[in-house]
């Protein structure tokens, strides 16, 4: 019998390759770079103030990925239903969990490439202004982790739908809620009207966590939180596929 790791690898490479084969990445990547650079340059004081940490850039990244991640994850399961390949997958001697993990890792890797491509800005900043490279590196790692959470949640939300538009919209809505809770503090602001000292945020400040990573006092709670959310979303993804096995 095939090991779970081999199945995960098989799905990872299949999905990763298909992002490049269907040319989606070639459309999304330039748009992502243009939006990332344009928002940083035009909507912040990026070039006019000393910017040792590229903080404005990293604060905008999760907001930008709220649009791009649903566009990447919407096809993960919808395409299986559309092409009727879900019947083939479910009749193979594999676990659904292995397929879910493989697909998730492929999307996460693609977002990693997108992030990596933005290091051009790092180079430019370091050359012209100068920056704290350790801090920027730590910021990249933390952003990659946050993007991982978003990929897992979005992949799960997408698995609940049978069409692309539905998968995109529901994924976007889930990410917007996640964002409102943890980054924008919107939920707290609303709930504070009704309940005193209400706090739904699990991690309070992205910059503070990054700073702790650089200084060596890594906020283990955040790392644990990130992987716990990813694991929960992947588990929910498996349950969603399993539910469709009984109900579709």
């Amino acid at each position: 019998m095939v090991g779970e790791t081999d199945i995960i690898k098989t799905f990872f490479f299949k999905e990763f390759k298909s992002f490049f084969q269907n040319k989606m990445i070639y459309v999304l990547l330039p748009i992502y770079l243009i939006i990332s650079f344009a928002t940083v340059i035009y909507f912040s004081d990026f070039m006019s103030v000393a910017n040792l940490s590229m903080q404005q850039f990293f604060l905008l990244q999760p907001r930008i990925f709220v649009i791009f991640i649903p566009a990447l994850t919407m096809r993960l399961w919808v395409e299986e239903y559309k092409n009727n390949t879900w019947e083939i997958l479910l009749s193979q001697p594999i676990s659904i969990a292995a397929a879910v993990i493989g697909k998730f890792l492929a999307v996460w890797a693609v977002t990693g490439i997108m992030l990596l491509s933005s290091t051009v800005l790092w180079g430019v900043t370091a050359w012209f202004i100068g920056c704290d490279n350790m801090f920027v590196l730590a910021n990249y790692l933390m952003t990659f982790l946050v993007v991982g959470i978003m990929c897992a949640v979005s992949a799960w939300a997408g698995a609940l739908c049978f069409n692309y538009i539905g998968a995109f919209l529901i994924s976007w809505a889930f990410l917007a809620i996640l964002f409102a809770v943890n980054f924008d503090n919107t939920i707290n602001k609303i709930m504070a009207l009704f309940i005193d000292n209400f706090n739904a945020r699990v991690f309070s400040d992205f910059a503070e966590i990054t700073a702790s990573l650089v200084s060596g006092e890594i906020k283990l709670a955040f790392i644990f939180y990130a992987f716990a959310i990813i694991a929960t979303a992947l588990w929910a993804n498996v349950v969603a596929i399993d539910y469709k096995r009984s109900e579709k």
Partner: peptide
């Protein structure tokens, strides 16, 4: 015994079930 069971079985659905980009 899902895995053991499926190891002995193959299914070809009416609508092929092929990955079109492969």
């Amino acid at each position: 015994n899902r895995k053991e069971y499926l190891q002995n079985i193959a299914y070809v659905p009416e609508l092929g079930g092929l990955y079109l980009d492969m």
